[in-house]
């Protein structure tokens, strides 16, 4: 048993897994950054109640929230002229943005409407009120659900193995395939 474990710990296997870890981290990092930007935008759009922007945001959020991530990853892989790792990151970003959008909207909703009236009566514009008064307060409420969602993103990167991207899970399966019979 010890010999087999030693075989697993060989340098090229360690490097192999480290590559997987790096891909996992890169996909999750990009997904978190971009989905936060796009999600905030979507959340504010939906919250704004603007006849067109709110509707666009709602359609976007509901369509992406109702689809399995695995399906999006496959669909994007097969219909976009992108490398698998990029189409996977894009699918994850667009999917996560829909969820972030709902978290942002929830956060904004939790801020007392009275704050709006107070700020507007002080001569603040809509955007100034949003930027300086409402969004910072909402952000504080959003931190726990956002953290949870971003942890989920790191976990969800394992889905991109389905299109052959060798992230951590994929590398693990390959090693299992090579050394499984000795276990």
């Amino acid at each position: 048993m010890m010999e087999e474990l030693a075989a697993l710990a060989q340098w090229h296997n360690v490097r192999f897994m480290a590559e997987g870890l790096w891909i996992t981290l890169r996909i999750s990092g990009l997904t978190i950054a971009f989905s936060f930007i796009l999600g905030t935008l979507l959340g504010v759009m939906r919250y704004s109640g603007h006849w067109l922007l709110a509707r666009i945001a709602a359609v976007y959020i509901e369509s992406f929230r109702a689809s399995p991530l695995i399906l999006l990853i496959l669909l994007f892989r097969f219909t976009m002229p992108l490398k698998p790792v990029n189409s996977g990151t894009l699918a994850m970003t667009l999917f996560t943005a829909a969820i972030v959008g709902e978290i942002v909207r929830g956060g904004l909703n939790s801020v007392d409407k009275g704050q709006w009236e107070a700020a507007r009566s002080q001569g603040f514009t809509w955007w100034q009120t949003m930027q300086h008064i409402v969004l910072p307060q909402a952000l504080r409420k959003m931190i726990p659900p956002l953290t949870g969602q971003f942890i989920t993103v790191v976990k969800d990167t394992s889905y991109v193995w389905v299109v052959g991207v060798q992230e951590l899970t994929g590398k693990g399966v390959i090693i299992l395939g090579q050394h499984g019979s000795t276990l």
Binding site: V173, I174, L176, G177, Q178, G180, S181, L183
Partner: peptide, 9 residues
């Protein structure tokens, strides 16, 4: 293929 091999093992 690695998945099929893991399934065989």
């Amino acid at each position: 293929y690695p998945e099929i091999k893991a399934a065989l093992d």
